[in-house]
Write a protein that binds this DNA or RNA. Structure first.
Lengths: 192, 192, 192, 192
DNA sequence: TATGAATGAGGATTCATTCAT
DNA sequence: AATGAATGAATCCTCATTCAT
């Protein structure tokens, strides 16, 4: 069965299985055995492609972040005005594909493991830094200089807070509700 | 060593040890053995007072929530104006005692286990409902009727988001920074 | 609460609780804690009256045997003929009080622990020897000399086998069914 | 060390170790650790092949029953007359291989766990039903219609009773003694 | 006499990882 | 490239026992 060039496919299979597994059974239940079985592969394969379980989790968070980052960049490129750029960031985070329950769950669960897995922390910091940087750049043309930081942090906190809320099993928050919150608040927070 | 009436003391000892353990070693490393050793007690004692580990975790989240709730109530009672009541809620969440790293870490880690432990989910929902209710009541006199919900949700998301950020090991957020964000944003979000 | 002369009462309470506990939850689940709770007493009391758990189990089997033995003696005293004496033994074993499910269960369960608890083995051997002796004495006048042993052993095996069957949770054997089996077989096995 | 197709061998190794362990140390001492060590394997292997300890115990009883059943069938096929078929059943149960102390011990010990492990109960019931059915069919041509049940039950009880007695550590019963009992009783119980 | 707090050893089980095939 | 057999450490939990009160 082994063929050439299977690496990317296998990696994707395993990462997807990890996300599903975390979503449906919880991180605590997301063992190598369960993940690989769900991927239709054997437990040994994880070591082959990711060295160990930590490697798989790190790769999973990396992919999650990459998807979000790609979507953000794509949308920001299309944006014409500073305000549009800000909305591009927000919309990227709450677009149905990335705000889907399994994605949000896995993201939140891995975030919770940051403290235990140093490499995961590094990956998370990259995401965090990029979001913060994007927000500050987008906010800068829209508010007085001394308000750039607090406004960017407020918006970042709202994004994270709404994601965290969406990761709860009984949540009532969905993408539209989240965007409505921003729609109400955003213009008031910016200077005219 | 066995004495009478030790129950409340022992419970507190174990809950405190749980918080410390999660803070210093991570939830994944917070085993019954390690928690009880840190409390200066034996592993068996957990079953004695909390039935099992889940019981201990649930009791821990309950206590965390209670502390926050008590502080919120205390501050809201002292508040004179609607705006003061809103700040009471915010200040309660970012008062140094409750915003201390170990508290925030444990709170975040347990939040991450909500999906796996049903009873934890119940406890978390109570906290969430109370915060939302408090925010709505406090916001109502300060904004137009149709804006009560989005504004309350925005503020709630900001609180959660800042807590979540504070729970990261490399965070730069502290209580003052968090409050500064609210100070900048709050008045603009409210109607005059 | 401690009063004088409670010893016999407490012992009986604990032995009865042991029998009930074994019957309702299985020997494996019959822990000191559960037994004492069912007796309305504290776990420590077992050490007080029986030294340790083995002591309690031994006392329980002893009492079970004693009840059976007393009943057998009582009935044998009333018997007039050799054949009556044989039936006295059989009837004693299948009289509703001693053939009750909880008694049979406990008896069978403790029998299964004989291999692990030497003192239990000793107690069991006493019962076994007495039953065998009673059977042989009763059978002797009723069969040729060389048939005393096999007939007595056959009857003993039937008694034990029916008890063992009665100890199964889904058994269809009751006292009447058991006696019917003897009624059919006994006379044919004896010489006329 | 891992090789392919080890499953049947490993299963047999573990089942045999279980029987030996029960025989030499008692069911209470037959822990997964001890069983697997005796099999020259690691504790984790039990989960691999039998899911959990219950699975191993069930598989053990199943194998014990199968051996007995195979032997019974083999002997019954060779039997020419109804009376031979009856003796085939008896002989199968008391043939030295199956009446060996370790087999009898394990069988008796597992029988004692029937109440606690539902699946074990199911397996036991199958054995019981087969034995009863075999006895009734064999007895039918040899006694009056209304005596089929009591005679079959009497013989079944004798078999179980002798096995139970043989399972006692200090027993004096061996295969020959058991067969002698049947030799004495059988013809008298049957109609001529 | 009786309690129940506390211990710590031992049990079953789960799991990441290794490695021969 | 991929498998899955096997390991053994770690975890949670149960339990008999001890002991101050």
């Amino acid at each position: 069965m082994p063929r050439l060039g299977m690496a990317p496919l296998r990696r994707t299979q395993l990462i997807d299985a990890t996300i599903q597994c975390i979503h449906e059974e919880g991180v605590g239940r997301a063992s190598v055995q369960r993940i690989s079985r769900r991927a239709g592969l054997s437990p040994g394969i994880v070591a082959h492609y990711f060295d160990d379980k930590e490697g798989l989790l790190v790769a999973t968070l990396r992919r999650l972040n990459k998807r979000l980052s790609d979507e953000t960049i794509r949308r920001m490129h299309q944006a014409k005005t500073p305000r549009d750029r800000l909305w591009a960031i927000i919309d990227a985070h709450f677009e149905p594909v990335h705000f889907a329950p399994d994605t949000v769950d896995a993201w939140f669960a891995l975030w919770g493991k940051v403290r235990e897995i140093p490499e995961l922390q590094r990956v998370h910091r990259v995401y965090e830094a990029r979001l913060r940087s994007n927000l500050r750049h987008s906010v800068r043309p829209l508010v007085a200089a001394e308000r750039v930081l607090p406004v960017a942090d407020a918006l970042g906190a709202m994004i994270d807070g709404l994601w965290a809320k969406a990761a709860q099993p009984t949540t009532e928050i969905d993408a539209d509700a989240a965007r409505a919150v921003f729609a109400d608040v955003l213009d008031r927070v910016l200077d005219h």
